[in-house]
Amino acid sequence: MKYKKTLSITIFIQFLTCFVYASETELRPLAPETPKRQNQFYYTYVDREHTREENLNNIAGVYAVTWLAYPLTQLKTVKENGSLTKYRHNFGKIVFDQDEPFWNWFVHPISGSQLFLFYRARGYSRSEALTMSFISSSLFEFTVEIYTEPASVQDLYQTPVLGAVLGLGIEKLSLYLLNTGNVIGKFIGHAINPSTLLWYYEGKVRVIPQVAPKQVGLNVQIDL
């Protein structure tokens, strides 16, 4: 009873905090600009429109990678449990898998987050990146993984959706770290978001300071 009362009060307070403004203090004059490292590149995400051909190429590219990556990363499972008979039997079948939380709540969301970040790096908006991840992971579940096991309901949903939630967090953290400009920050930023290091990443902006008499500016260059 006491537990329920405490919980109700906590939820009510949580509810009230939704209404409170983020900052209620008066704005003070801006502090003098703090010194920052000179960065050659600024890391960001540039959302843009894609043609149907680009969409198909991206999906086909990821699909080809999954055909290579699955046997390479799950060699034992593919050898012991995989067969063409199983492929035919599992085709079109959908089940709840019995995997442990380590796989469903950790490994799949991590792979989903990297898929989401791949599409983000290719210039897709967050919603589009999630939709493309959903298509790619469904293709993997229904046509690649069935070589060893049937498509799983949890994986179909959680890989793209939990992956996108995790991917959003990784995206924000990696951009912050990459733009700090220090070596450790850049190393960790690239390690958690490897797409930022690869050729297809479209958000790497070259920043060239331009100084002329009585004029100071920045030349920003984006490669698309």
Binding site: F19, V20, Y21, Q98
Partner: peptide, 22 residues
């Protein structure tokens, strides 16, 4: 004045559900 009273709406949601319990 210090509370951000944003507009709200109510909703009703329903659907079939499949669940696995371990």
């Amino acid at each position: 004045e210090t509370i951000n009273l944003t507009p709200w709406y109510a909703y009703f949601k329903l659907g079939p559900s499949w669940m696995i319990q371990s």
